[in-house]
């Protein structure tokens, strides 16, 4: 077996720090990576189920080689979007609150203009 060639892991350049404690930056990165790995596992279960439904043996080789068609990809896209709604609940909650507050900052006259303009 040929020797593995290792690619560079970090992009050159200072990484921005988004939170007061750099440990929070790391924890968020790990959480998002884990969310990704859960989605990978879920797709793998979905593959096993689909192979079994098609009467095929869900061996490791069959699962690894599985290529989802357009309909399966669309179903998985939809699943991931609602999965992210669930995982990112706290963000969506904050967004909803901000949306309400932003609407409250609008003068009432602006709302009249908006509905009259057809919005």
């Amino acid at each position: 077996m040929a020797e593995t060639i290792t690619l560079q892991k970090k992009a050159r350049g200072e990484r921005p720090q988004y939170f007061a404690d750099p440990a929070i930056d790391k924890a968020l990165s790990i959480t998002l990576a884990l969310a990704g790995e859960v989605a990978v596992l879920r797709d793998r279960i979905d593959t096993i189920e689909r192979l079994a439904e098609a009467g095929q043996s869900p061996t490791r080789a069959a699962v690894d080689a599985y290529v989802p068609d357009a309909a399966v990809r669309a179903a998985r896209d939809a699943w991931r979007d609602s999965y992210l709604d669930t995982v990112l609940r706290i963000i969506h909650q904050e967004r909803e609150e901000l949306e309400q507050r932003a609407a409250d900052t609008k003068p009432y006259a602006a709302v009249i203009d908006e509905v009259e303009a057809g919005g």
């Binding site: 990704g36 989605a39 690894d64 998985r76 991931r80 992210l84």
Partner: peptide, 20 residues
């Protein structure tokens, strides 16, 4: 299939961040 799923997750995450 796992490698493809990992890439599809990133695509979904990017779309979710952009759209929602």
């Amino acid at each position: 299939s796992d490698e493809f799923s990992r890439q599809e997750f990133v695509k979904s995450l990017k779309f979710h961040l952009a759209s929602k």
